[in-house]
Computed example of a mutant assay.
Amino acid sequence: MFELALAGPSHGNPFVDVDLSAEFSFEGRTQRALGFYDGDGSYLIRFMPDREGEWTFRTSSNARSLDGIEGRFAALAQAEGNRGPVRVSNTYHFAYEDGTPYYRSGLPATYGHTKGTNSRSRHSGPSPRPLLTKCACACSRRRTCTTRMS
């Protein structure tokens, strides 16, 4: 992943007042990525190139200090064992770029992990089990299936 960090305006409300994007080009192809305000006058644009090689970029912004910045970077081969980004696979599932299924494990940190009252739970003690909708093998047994749950 390529991350471009830029210094820009911090007056007003830069979260909503400043529009920032960049066009990334490689061998005649162009892809656009949006930027965002990261606080303390810092703006970031993150881009994941899909091909190895020398990429160029040019920023576009309604803030003069962020507009028209040009540069280049080299996209290298993936590290050994890196399967690529996770994408939607077969409408309801996820898989890595190389086709390996992706199984998320764990719960979001906000799902009732504390005792007492929070936005999701109004009881004291252990949090309730999440509703498991279907198992990884796509059978209809849900909680009784011994395959990994999705």
Rank of each mutant, 00 (worst) to 15 (best):
P101R: 08
Y92A: 13
A79F: 12
F57E: 01
T114M: 09
G106K: 09
A63Q: 06
D19A: 12
G116R: 00
S124T: 11
T146N: 14
G84T: 12
G12R: 02
Y43V: 03
L20V: 00
R141C: 10
F15E: 10
C137W: 06
Y103K: 06
N13I: 11
K134S: 12
S121A: 07
T56I: 06
F2N: 04
D17Y: 00
A95V: 07
T114Y: 07
R129P: 14
T110N: 11
N13T: 12
V88D: 14
Y37Q: 09
G84N: 12
E3N: 13
F36E: 12
G71V: 07
S10Q: 09
D40T: 10
R32N: 15
F47K: 00
P49G: 12
M48F: 15
L34N: 05
A138P: 03
R87W: 07
Y111P: 02
G28S: 06
S60P: 03
E3P: 08
F94Q: 05
S105Y: 02
S61H: 05
P108A: 11
S42E: 10
H113Q: 14
T91Y: 13
D19E: 09
F94P: 01
G71E: 04
D98P: 09
Y96L: 08
S150N: 04
S127I: 03
G71Q: 04
P49K: 08
G12F: 00
L6S: 01
R51Q: 15
Y96C: 04
R29W: 03
T91N: 13
S140Y: 09
A77Q: 14
C135F: 08
T91Q: 13
Q31M: 07
E23T: 12
A77V: 13
S60G: 13
K134A: 11
P128K: 08
I45C: 00
G81T: 04
G39S: 05
G71T: 07
S105H: 09
F73I: 02
G81N: 03
F26W: 05
L131C: 02
P14R: 04
R72L: 04
S89I: 02
L34T: 01
R83S: 14
H113V: 07
G68D: 11
G99Y: 13
A5H: 11
R32V: 13
R58Y: 01
R120H: 08
G71W: 01
G106Y: 05
V16T: 11
N118E: 08
A7H: 09
R141E: 10
D38I: 01
T147K: 13
L34Y: 01
S10N: 10
N62W: 04
A95N: 08
P108M: 04
L4E: 00
P108F: 00
G68V: 10
N90H: 14
G41P: 08
S42H: 09
H93T: 12
A22Y: 03
K115Y: 15
F47C: 01
A109L: 13
A136G: 14
F73P: 02
G106M: 03
I45A: 01
E23G: 15
C139M: 06
C137Q: 07
G35C: 03
M1P: 14
V18K: 03
A33T: 02
V16Q: 10
H123W: 11
C145Y: 11
R32H: 05
P101N: 05
G99R: 10
C139F: 03
G41C: 05
E27S: 10
S140W: 09
A95Q: 07
S65T: 10
A5W: 02
S65E: 12
S42D: 10
E3R: 13
S60I: 07
C145I: 10
E70K: 11
R29G: 08
G41D: 06
D19Y: 00
